[in-house]
Design a protein around this nucleic acid. Sequence first.
RNA 1: GCUGCUGUGGCUCAGGGGUAGAGCACGUCCUUGGUAAGGACGAGGUCAUGGGUUCAAAUCCCAUCAGCAGCUCCA
Length: 640
Amino acid sequence: MVKIKLPGGIEKSFQKNITVRDVSGDDVFKNREPAIAGKLNSRIVDLDFPIESDTTLDLVMPNSNEGMEILRHSAAHLMAQAVTRLYPNAKLGIGPSIKDGFYYDFDLEQTLSQEDLEKIEEEMLKIAEEDLPYKRLEEPRTVAIERMEKANQSYKVELIKGLEDETVSFYQQGDFIDLCKGPHVSSTKNTGVFKLLSLAGAYWRGKETNPMLQRIYGTVFTNKKALAKHLKVLEEIKKRDHRKIGTALDLYSFHDKGGPGLVFWHPKGAAIRNVIETFWRSEHYARGYDILYSPHIAKIDLWKTSGHLDYYKDSMFSPIEVEGQEYILRPMNCPFAILMYQSSLRSYRDLPLRWGELGTVYRYERSGVLHGLLRVRGFTQDDAHIFCRPDQLQDEIEGVLDLALFMLNCFGFDEYEIELAVRGKGNEEKYIGENENWILAEEALTAALNKKQLDFARMEDEAKFYGPAIDIKTKDALGRGWQGPTIQVDFNLPERFDINYIGSDGIQHKVVMLHRTVIGAMERFLGCLIEHHAGNFPLWLAPIQVRVLPISDKFNDYALETKNKLSKAGIRTEVDTKSAKIGFKIREGTLEKIPYLLIVGEKEVEDEAVSVRSRKSGNEGPIPLSQFILRVEDEVRDKA
RNA sequence: GCUGCUGUGGCUCAGGGGUAGAGCACGUCCUUGGUAAGGACGAGGUCAUGGGUUCAAAUCCCAUCAGCAGCUCCA
């Protein structure tokens, strides 16, 4: 007999080697739906797992995180089985469960196409109907290697050889067997509702030098409704794609004749950017920053001193030769701020210096990584460098955190996660700078976060080689994470450039340098904003805030008058004098996602009014123009 | 950079060895219409670029460039 502790503190005795499945039939679980697996002393096992000794048991339910992971992994096996049936020569790579789905990598002679996915999916359905049990078997390493060699599964052989355990486990369903830790669902029939989504190349074990396998991505859920919901989210993501919306709203463009990854900002995109930049500047001035401008290129020696040429060369544009001198297009702004710092002697009384710059930088990104506005080759960072004394570090970090969170909030991001990237224990030599400095910096970063009562995750060994950092990851309307503000302490550049201040003791001390960005890069941030708001920019950012639509051209004059009054109040306004019906003008304005459409006709002229149609709530009826102006001004001020 | 797919008027896309099509947008005219598409006519393309095959290439082949999906990368 074995004693098993069940949920609710109930302990019961069962026959030895009773399976999890059998225990799950016990009265204790009678109100639960069928489990997908069991959890013995927090180790997840198959339903068929025989219980040999006293233990604690809970069930893993299909819709739990753990349950979904099992389901996804089982679906990956199911797919691999289907592929193996259709392409008997397929060599298997790996097939894990991932967020929202699974994939499996195959080495195939023929290249798969989208149509092949449908065939594979059909085969999967067939196998599911065959109701084949997933059976676990264990065998010694050597036998396992032999088995896989015989099956000509060279990748699996490689995997097993990399394992340290003397026994390895396989899972078999019908004619298909695969190396696997498990656990799995009990049968192919229980592999949920799945859909194969996409194809892609993927290097074996993620190494560029390894052969490229064909990866199939799929997703699976316990029921049709959940799958449909997920597919809808994917569709929504596609609809929100900033590349699509950016073109539709005429915000920016790329050009073959311009060059890949180089953004051309159209008037409307530029208008948004301009609002952001103006806001950025005033907010920085208000918080004791000064603002700099510096050139986009500089002599190569500067980049030698900064170390960029050594550490960052692969991401830089090739040098430009002028009058026998090599110049580098800047990939970062920091050396320029340092040159300016060095332009005079600095006293401890001068510090901190908070120097911000909307600095345009150029980076050579490999062609395959470019992606709309999110990954480009020329972009403008909302950069700032803070030069301070060690005793000022914590205050400065708090100030940046304040600013960063304030700005995120203004742009409609209220969810975020904070990470503190620090040195890893045991490999301190990877990092530059004095040990005591690292400790000081880490303490300052931690203290600032604590003082602001911000939750954060400590990320060991995630620091840059030159200093620890705080990274803030924002979440957008669809729950997707974006790289947000970062605050980095830098021990490297002050050393390399030997930048100092004169202390109260009359001797030189090394200055402490902080790099920070709040919104990152204008390009990426705008891409993110587009997707976050699905192109419905909040009023204060909208490139056109109001469009006046005369009912017929008899009212064009009144419409123009209205526009002038709005413009005078600083509201970005247009008039639509096209000779079209009002319905048509409204449709156009709506598609352009303009926050306010003002319809003006006979009634409005008489009453000095405008008929308001807002993006949020549609037709709101007429109000006096003066009142409307107040309303818009309020809303802009509130950044609503 | 790697693998695969794609490249046709400003946009979205159809077609496909015998010298180009639709819708939207654009222009002109008619229409002056009250909350998501009024009508007529018209202009606009060396079918990404360069080679090749062919009597004939936008169509087939190769290369290049660019885009897309991933992989890798992002000190």
